[in-house]
């Protein structure tokens, strides 16, 4: 295939394959703002083909070793930004220490996309309908960022700002995501409601709870597909902390969602319907959390 083929629809761009992080950052700096990092390309390539994005330079970061690998570091699991969605299913460390990600992974698109798409890329794009960005909130993850002015770590709670807008500054990229290790006193649950398997969910939700005996000591609940960003529901969380998971508590948490969520207008899923679905899903997941004892 060459450029004469009919399938090429993107505007012409230059391509640079970075071998190191410094090379990637340097290339971006030299291109001004007119560059994009590319890893799995599962969102960027369609955007290029649709000419929604047309950078002069694509910087391929998939050969940077530093962005790879999953390993324990102290109380955290360090998940390299290039970790592919399919590895969330196959990597034993993730199944053991970040089981919520393992549970959410089968809901991420389809196998062909999971084979290429990367964890870091998904979090960096911050699609509010994506599973992984929302799960970084539930997991209280920290996002490690490298850029022209050095490295920093940002709490997931402070990372997602608005629709496709994050704490990432121009020229910065995600190097890894740090997830606190899953503990024996914790329980998790994930599910989503979608019309077809692998579709963008009508509503999705994941939660991680720490129990003190039968009472919830701490819980973080995060939704996808409910607004402009992945969304933690602090009001619902507050109704559960210190409580036993009974029908009354679950109903209270469901009731609190109205204050937590303000779903957008949509012709297929009106706000009231999405709120209803969020309640149904919360009820089902908290029910499962209770059964998991």
């Amino acid at each position: 295939m060459d450029l004469e083929e009919t399938a090429v629809k993107a505007r012409a761009f230059s391509y640079f394959r970075a071998a190191t992080l410094d090379q990637a950052l340097d290339a971006h700096a030299r291109a001004g703002d007119d560059a994009r990092f590319i890893a799995g390309g599962q969102s960027l390539v369609p955007a290029l083909s649709l000419r929604l994005q047309a950078p002069r330079l694509l910087i391929d970061i998939t050969h940077i070793d530093e962005l790879r690998g999953v390993r324990r570091e102290g109380g955290h699991l360090r998940i390299g930004a290039l970790t592919r969605h399919c590895e969330m299913l196959s990597e034993p460390l993730i199944a053991e220490f970040a089981p919520l990600l393992h549970a959410a992974a089968p809901f991420v698109a389809h196998p062909a996309i999971r084979n290429r798409g990367t964890f870091g890329g998904s979090v960096a794009l911050a699609d509010p309908a994506s599973e992984f960005p929302a799960m970084t909130l539930a997991l209280d993850a920290e996002i490690e960022i490298a850029g022209p002015s050095g490295r920093r770590r940002v709490k997931a709670d402070n990372f997602f700002i608005d629709l496709f807008e994050t704490a990432l500054q121009p020229g910065e990229l995600i190097t890894a995501i740090y997830v606190p290790l899953f503990r024996a006193d914790q329980r998790f649950a994930f599910d989503e409601l979608a019309r077809r398997r692998g579709d963008y969910a009508l509503v999705g939700c994941g939660m991680l709870a720490t129990f003190a005996g039968e009472r919830i000591h701490d819980i973080r609940i995060s939704y996808l597909s409910v607004g402009n960003t992945p969304t933690r529901v602090r009001g619902a969380e507050a109704t559960l902390i210190g409580q036993r998971l009974d029908a009354e508590r679950i109903a209270a948490a469901q009731g609190a969602l109205e204050g937590d969520l303000a779903p957008p207008e949509s012709d297929e899923v009106p706000p009231a319907m999405r709120l209803h679905l969020a309640r149904v899903l919360l009820g089902r997941l908290l029910g499962r959390l209770g059964e998991a004892a």
Binding site: L3, V8, K9, R11, A12
Partner: peptide, 12 residues
């Protein structure tokens, strides 16, 4: 045009 990509560029 000589390629679909050039034709698409010209459309703009």
């Amino acid at each position: 045009a000589e390629s679909r990509a050039i034709a698409e560029d010209a459309l703009e």
